[in-house]
Amino acid sequence: MAISEEQVYAGISTVIDPEVGFDIVSLGLIYGVKIEGEHVHVTMTLSTRGCPLHELIKQWTKESVEKLEGVKTCEVEVVWEPAWNISMASDIVKKALEA
């Protein structure tokens, strides 16, 4: 059975940004997920361009998807347009950051 988008998102949401302390799905860093059979293409961004965790977060995202049943390969593409901003994050994250 083919994997669903929700399952991919659930997989990615195990990836935590250790600086901010939230998973990257709640932060709104994932722009899109495309499923083509057993291949998944993830489009994402990062909160800062000069982020030293850049490669790691990308790597973790790839691994978190490839771990899922029904996925063979995953490609992660990092884009900078549109630039991330806080309105893309979930309400829980927004509240927590403002506290």
Partner: peptide, 22 residues
């Protein structure tokens, strides 16, 4: 914390619980 975390804990991500930087 980032430097130490990167050196010590980043290889453990996904394998065990790792601390947040703060």
């Amino acid at each position: 914390p980032f430097l130490v975390w990167y050196d010590k804990f980043s290889p453990l991500v996904g394998k065990q619980k790792v601390p947040m930087l703060h």
